[in-house]
Design a protein around this nucleic acid. Structure first.
Lengths: 221, 221
DNA sequence: CGGACCTCTCAGCGGATTCTCAGCGCCCTG
DNA sequence: CAGGGCGCTGAGAATCCGCTGAGAGGTCCG
């Protein structure tokens, strides 16, 4: 979700999370383009009025980059840009502020359904599975309970499974992008995850690439 | 712009000029490679069907020469090469003929804005491959694990594969630019790399050019 | 308020990595 | 064939980096 009005962003964020969505929030156009290019979201909620790059341009950039994630635009009723623009630009749906929260959820579900079966709802790596909608992690059919942070980290690693991701990237992707604390947290949480996920298995699903970062074995370790 | 159909070339040339672009036009693949290597364009529009060298080869040659100018390819709808090929080859965008002129302008703007040209994801030299995103090195399909320094050195050599690079250049490129220690480190690390990469192969992928430096054999040794 | 849980910081340890050094040997040149 | 320059090599010292256990602070809940 890309929304700069903090109040609205917070409300919607909470509501969507309660509705079972996993929500990532950015507050301006530049971060939106970056995040959407980097991750593979199911759907993007995009406000038109944004700092740095407006929603208009964000959408344009994403499409130019070959990012075809469905986009639902939020337009102000009497703003500079009207509904026609949203569709012209390749938005998949739009809502005019103020909008009903239930309508938003319904539209999002429709978009995700429409975008369809090729989009994974469940990430897998060998015998490890992570169900994004239910927020469940299993290994070999046994459920593993994770804290929110642990879950976020695992989701990030699974989205990039097979790639080596640096601790900095992890911090930016899982922690607050502006987090500036000790990168050692990542090590600590990797440890927590390994404890829960790898034991009692022989091989580590999460490999350490010394000097570079971590890598989730696509075969699940 | 590289386009051999004079009529189309002329129209597009005029249109782009009107839209504020400064356009240089060549009509065949050989001139295209020469011009793009010599100048530093913001973006290249490249037709696939061309005399002498087709767009396909032009792109391949440019990338091999280290020219990373963004390329937008023009493909015929039902031609020998389809869209997939364009992306596979490292084209940054493509359009299928016939195309809307406005769309072309929009895409070009997007490519120029995008600025930092995409880099290739996998470098190869014979049976040696280096995957930049996964940070994996393989020879003949067998994974080779490298320390960060070794990896940095190999990446540098592979980016300049076929060129002779001096130890000073290597130090500047792989070590800290302000590094002032013994250039002997390079020799030491070349040795480490050869141990891991060349054995048990007969020929050295990394050749010593006495008095000059080193050269990575583009055929992989 | 008290306890359970979660997040994050911190500092010490030990192994991996990087770098230095000194001697050797090969190649080129005279 | 002798000598110098240059690269190669093995060993070892210094440094870096990730791992780990302990614990402090915060939050949520009863």
């Amino acid at each position: 979700m890309v929304e700069d009005e903090l109040r609205l962003a917070d409300t919607v964020h909470r509501g969507l999370t309660d509705a079972g969505f996993v929500v990532e929030l950015v507050h301006d156009g530049e971060n939106a383009v970056w995040a959407a290019t980097e991750h593979n979201y199911d759907v993007i909620v995009l406000d038109i009025m944004l700092p740095k790059l407006n929603g208009y341009r964000v959408l344009e950039l994403l499409r130019a980059r070959g990012v075809w994630t469905p986009v639902l635009m939020l337009t102000a009723k009497d703003g500079e840009y009207d509904q026609t623009d949203a569709f012209d630009l390749g938005a998949d749906d739009y809502l005019t502020k103020p909008f009903s929260f239930l309508v938003l959820v319904a539209r999002l579900r429709a978009l995700i359904r429409r975008g369809g079966p090729e989009r994974p709802v469940v990430l897998t790596a060998g015998d490890l599975t992570l169900d994004l909608t239910r927020r469940r992690v299993e290994r070999n059919g046994r459920e593993i309970t994770l804290t929110p942070r642990e879950y976020g980290l695992l989701e990030f690693l699974m989205r990039h499974r097979g790639d080596t991701v640096s601790k900095t990237e992890i911090l930016a992707g899982v922690w607050d992008p502006a987090f500036d604390g000790d990168p050692n947290v990542v090590e600590v949480y990797v440890r927590y995850l390994r404890k829960k996920i790898d034991t009692p298995y022989a091989r580590h699903a999460i490999e350490t690439i010394r000097g570079m970062g971590y890598r989730l074995n696509p075969e699940g370790g």
